[in-house]
Simulated assay, not measured.
Amino acid sequence: MVIQYQIEKQYRQSFFLQFKDNNWEILIPLLLKKPFFIFSFNREINMYQTIMSAQKEFFNSDKPLTTFLFKSKVKQQTLEEYIIKKTRNNVDRKQSSCIFNYQIVVEYQMKKLHISVLCLRFEQLIYSIVIDSEDPLINQTNIKLNQSLQHCRNILNAQLMQINKVLGLYLQDTFSPLLRDLRISLFELYYKQLQSQKLQLVKMKKLLLKCSKIFETPNNKIKIDCGEEIQFATIKSSLIIFIFEIFKQIQINQHVYIFINQKKTTTMFIYGLKQLPDTVQFKRCLQTLIDQTNCTAQYFSFEFQKSPSSHFHFENNDIFQQLL
Rank of each mutant, 00 (worst) to 15 (best):
L239Q: 01
I250N: 00
V91Q: 11
T266I: 09
I7P: 03
F232N: 03
T266S: 10
F215A: 02
E228W: 06
F215E: 02
D132I: 15
Q254D: 03
N316V: 14
Q76P: 02
E188W: 08
Q231L: 02
C295N: 11
D62T: 14
S237C: 06
R183C: 05
L199C: 07
N294Q: 11
Q251F: 00
L182W: 00
N219F: 13
I155G: 05
I230E: 03
Q95C: 07
D62W: 06
K213C: 04
Y11N: 08
N157L: 12
K264I: 11
I241H: 00
K33A: 14
N220C: 08
Q275M: 08
K198D: 13
S176D: 15
D135A: 11
K94M: 06
T265G: 01
Q77H: 10
P218A: 00
A297Q: 13
K205V: 05
K248S: 05
P177I: 01
N142E: 12
Y257S: 09
N219G: 06
D92C: 10
S307E: 09
L30K: 15
K71M: 07
M52E: 05
I83L: 11
C226A: 08
S310G: 01
N261G: 06
F58N: 03
R121L: 09
L169N: 12
T67E: 12
Q140C: 12
I260F: 09
S133G: 07
K223T: 12
I129C: 06
L182Y: 04
Q262A: 05
V74A: 07
Y5L: 11
C98F: 06
N253V: 03
A158G: 10
Y191K: 03
Y5K: 15
I115C: 09
K63P: 03
L27V: 09
F314M: 09
Q281G: 02
Q275A: 10
M204G: 00
I184F: 02
T78V: 09
L169H: 12
Q95I: 11
C295V: 14
R12N: 09
N219D: 13
Y102R: 07
L171N: 04
K86L: 10
S116W: 08
I270T: 03
M268G: 00
I222C: 04
N253Y: 07
F68K: 02
L171I: 04
S237P: 01
D92E: 13
N220V: 01
T141I: 15
Q262S: 08
M110W: 06
I83M: 12
Y48S: 04
N317G: 00
S72I: 04
I126H: 04
E188L: 14
Y5I: 10
P177N: 00
I163L: 13
K20P: 00
V2Y: 12
K9T: 05
A233H: 14
M110A: 14
K248G: 01
S176L: 02
Q147E: 14
R93H: 12
K206E: 15
L201Q: 11
